[in-house]
Amino acid sequence: MTVLKIAAVLFVILTLILSIIITKVFRLNKFGFNFADLAFPLFAFEFYFISDKFFFHNWLPLLGVALSILSMWIVIYFLRKKRSFYYPKFFKFFWRAGFILTFFLYLALVISIFL
């Protein structure tokens, strides 16, 4: 269990570093990709993997509910403030905001492992 706790903490650092390196090496900035675009699915997979190993039930449904609420909030924001809904813009905004949400939920997961 101690090795998995260390791995959970290292995943935070290594995922960000790996995403930044891949973005710079393959020059993905030219195509509009950010390190967050690569780190988001990695954090979602790590969230599933770590929660499955440490808890009786994994926390993936919690992540799904949080991302669903985030998507509804973004749709309401676009319809109220922008008065239009452009799907590619929504998807890009959702993907980047989903990264932030997943990152913080993963940090909360790591903190709950140590408590």
Rank of each mutant, 00 (worst) to 15 (best):
Y48F: 15
I20N: 08
I111G: 03
L79H: 01
N29D: 15
F45C: 13
A36P: 00
G64C: 13
I20Q: 11
N34W: 09
I22K: 13
W73S: 09
F11P: 01
I13Q: 01
F56T: 15
A36M: 10
L109F: 00
L38E: 03
P88Q: 08
P61H: 06
S84E: 00
M1P: 10
I76V: 14
L79N: 04
T15Y: 00
M72N: 09
P41S: 00
H57K: 15
F55W: 12
N58S: 11
L105R: 09
T2V: 11
S84T: 00
W73A: 12
I74N: 06
F11I: 11
L67G: 12
H57R: 15
K53N: 14
T2C: 05
I22R: 10
A36L: 09
I6D: 06
S112Y: 01
D52E: 14
F33T: 10
Y87T: 07
K81R: 09
I76S: 07
N34C: 06
D37P: 01
L16W: 05
L115R: 12
R83H: 05
I22M: 13
A108I: 07
F93V: 04
A66M: 13
L101C: 10
S84A: 01
K89R: 14
F56S: 15
L105A: 12
L38S: 01
F43H: 02
Y106H: 04
I6N: 13
I76P: 00
V9H: 09
F99C: 03
F78V: 00
F91H: 09
L109T: 01
F54W: 03
A39P: 03
F85Q: 02
L109C: 01
L67H: 14
V3P: 07
N58R: 08
F33N: 06
F114A: 09
I17P: 03
V9I: 15
K92Q: 15
K89D: 09
T15L: 04
I17E: 04
A8P: 07
I21T: 13
W59S: 14
V9C: 11
G98F: 00
S51N: 11
A39H: 04
L10E: 08
I21G: 10
L67Q: 14
I74L: 15
I100K: 05
F78Y: 05
P41F: 00
W59Q: 14
P61M: 06
Y86V: 09
T15N: 02
A7F: 15
